[in-house]
Nucleic acid binder design. Structure first.
Lengths: 116, 116
DNA sequence: CCTAATCGTTTCGGAGCCGTTTTATTTAAC
DNA sequence: GTTAAATAAAACGGCTCCGAAACGATTAGG
């Protein structure tokens, strides 16, 4: 566990990273889309529409639409589960992994630059 | 400066806080609105529409609309600058300060719980 | 004065996301 | 085999946001 963050540092970190994301503009992901993206890339697969909806506390169509958008951006891909063809499993992509990695770099850089 | 964050920790932190914001649902602020809110509450006043637009790299109408929404939520207030009545200065509110403080608490809590 | 520049807002057409409801496909139950 | 349950997607109406352009109000320059 890292050293405790002070309130000013925590807010400064969130501000700086958010500002970077807004300025770069590439992402343009909503909070839900960001939550879906990071869940898919950080938590253990498999990820289904239903599971993601439950985890985020939103409806399934919201997840489907988020996956539509993110699929269009190449950040994730969808495939029918061969075992149970009702399910759709969400899978990672190279572009998605790169985007997540870049986000991690931004967070680390901004965290490193936090004032004492 | 806090101890260095590892990539996994940085992404886990962003994921956990984002998930909290999505699940609570209260905020529902876009990335731009979040950037405006934190800029107003963390950086030195005065804050003008033009200055915020330049800082965030977006158009002025986008800032005006963000301030409309956030004003409706009671998170900020606007007043004409008496010195130069063309300018509008964005000011803090009690509700806005509380919302920012709660966000800081979430970031701190999630940071504290990061795995080694 | 009077023109030009600055500032914030409003308007406009277009695009995206929301929740609810409906549809289609697939699996489970009996 | 037929019906019921589960899953994701599509359709629908409503709401918000976007950038560009046009618009008033205010100030600065000559």
């Amino acid at each position: 566990m890292p050293a405790e963050l002070r309130p000013t540092q925590a807010l400064r970190l969130w501000h700086d990273v958010t500002l970077d994301l807004v300025r770069d503009g590439e992402h343009d992901l909503s909070a839900r889309q960001m939550a879906v993206l990071l869940t898919v890339y950080l938590e253990m697969p498999p990820h289904t529409v239903r599971g993601l909806a439950a985890k985020l506390g939103v409806t399934k169509p919201a997840i489907t639409r988020a996956l539509d958008t993110m699929g269009r951006l190449g950040l994730v891909s969808r495939h029918r589960d061969p075992k149970d063809r009702r399910n759709v499993v969400v899978q990672r992509t190279v572009a998605g992994a790169l985007a997540v990695e870049r986000l991690g770099d931004v967070v680390i850089a901004r965290h490193r630059e936090l004032p004492l």
